[in-house]
Design a binder for these strands. Sequence first.
DNA 1: TTGTAAGCGTTATCAT
DNA 2: ATGATAACGCTTACAA
Lengths: 333, 333
Amino acid sequence: MATIQDVAKAAGVSPMTVSNVINDHPNVRPSTREKVMEAMVRLDYRVNVAARNLRKGRTGVIGLAVPEVNSAYYGLLAATIITAAERRGLRVSVEQTASRENELDALSLSRNRLYDGLILSAAGLEQADAERLRVDHPVVILGDRIFGGPVDHVAMPNFDASREATRHLIERGCCRIAILCGAADEVDTSSLRLTGYRQALQDAGLPSDPALIQQVDRLGMREGAERAREMAESGLDFDGVFCVTDSLAMGVLRGLADVGTRVPDQVKVIGFDNVMESEFLIPSLSTVDPDHDGMAERAVDLLIRRIEQTEPPTGHQDVVGDFSLVIRESTGG
Amino acid sequence: MATIQDVAKAAGVSPMTVSNVINDHPNVRPSTREKVMEAMVRLDYRVNVAARNLRKGRTGVIGLAVPEVNSAYYGLLAATIITAAERRGLRVSVEQTASRENELDALSLSRNRLYDGLILSAAGLEQADAERLRVDHPVVILGDRIFGGPVDHVAMPNFDASREATRHLIERGCCRIAILCGAADEVDTSSLRLTGYRQALQDAGLPSDPALIQQVDRLGMREGAERAREMAESGLDFDGVFCVTDSLAMGVLRGLADVGTRVPDQVKVIGFDNVMESEFLIPSLSTVDPDHDGMAERAVDLLIRRIEQTEPPTGHQDVVGDFSLVIRESTGG
DNA sequence: TTGTAAGCGTTATCAT
DNA sequence: ATGATAACGCTTACAA
């Protein structure tokens, strides 16, 4: 493995000149550059990134930590962040955290030094963990469980969007609307969306029946399908379902089909995320379309700001994204 | 940012002793360890990974480069590889390549030094690029365009599985079976699967009608839906479709629904990949279920072998994975 | 059991 | 325009 020294020797110049050639510094005579280039090719020289990182204290790579990589939503999130970062000349490296402990690990600087900064999409962290976010390293949190923490934060428009989604079901004539969400024990995605749902019911003067609040362990397709079947088979009376994620909604569509319930005729279904798949489902899925691009852009911008500033972090931002509703067949087109 | 030196000073020992504590070396007196630990906590010491990498030449992280992160198949692939690597004590960092050029970049040692090795899921590389794979760095290729190259290689059972999938359609009574694949100009996923399809037709004594070979630009849902509509609207006579990916198949199901064609009654559809979603589609999707776990295990094993061996690489392996068929509603259950 | 010295490969600074 | 020197933070080899 050739080093800068080897190239320098081969080209008959100093290591510094080789470095200048590599980094496109201006003051290199064309003939010298030529010689060096030739030597680099001949020796098949590759820069040692570890050494460069050590010296520069920068890698040009940011980390993105997500709870799972095999999920429609996080896949979309990753793609969006990668695009936004690319525009700013940064590469992205995606890691799966899978557990709350791993989320905290991802934060720990020890793992972190490979990246100039970290975008952490946290599902498991709670307000109680907020203090542990006080790291002297650029971090932006994507998620809903932590506000006003010692860290920049980009969140979904959970309340407003859920209210709109529920209102849409009401406008389409639903009056027994169920919500499918996770255990909403504290401030998290599910509880925020549940609040929006409740508000919409109240706005419309509809009663809120606890039996219609359906909580599942995971927000995945399987859980959605199982619960939908149970709801139908138990004789629960409902004519609309607001699912707090599109994955849940995909499952619900399937579960309702299993028991012969027609969507949207008998029950209307709306999701949240506007995942790529939702457009192609049968029936196609009405859903909340968060401004993924805008939020990704914002998250990357915030992170870059922290990366480039030298003073200790201060004035942390809480950004809430935009959204719109996409109406498709599952609520009657 | 505290360094080992700072900790050493604070604890009244040498940097080496601190290093020994960090790395759990045996010969450290408990009382010394105590002192050092205390100093580390007090100074909030974190090891600088860049420096350690430079010195050790190892990172404990392997890279996984995929064409796109927002795709059901690559999401599944990433999750499977991560699981397999975790079992072997390695962390995985996922990167999106998006283009053939980026795939070659990912290979280039310059990017690569951040990882102990790279698993490259190559979509764009061709046999012509094989020589460029001759890198003195651990690499395992996942994909179908390169065989017998200077690199370990894990491939899907493309031919056999496609033949089985097509045969299944024939057994279910289809005799005008279309295939939806990418431009099959050379050795790649699409052409291998196309060959299996042709073989199955021939096995059954069915004619192979060129009009039934439908090539699309991308193997995504949108392309599947558009092409299915075109096929139906153009009056093409077909009663079965073998899609070379589940994403294509998802689109086809949607496209056929758009034009009022019933699946599986009028047309049967089978996919390839057994992506998470396929179980929950309406109708649920019959598909080839490759042995994802086995292949991931194999890829990680091969990579580790290369990482741990010091001699120049030799005896490269071409591994082909296992598969089974999953029969669901889209071919009549 | 602990410490010293040297070097991993690169680049910033300053000198020539 | 080019080069000498030192330093980034860590660990291996060896000495004490």
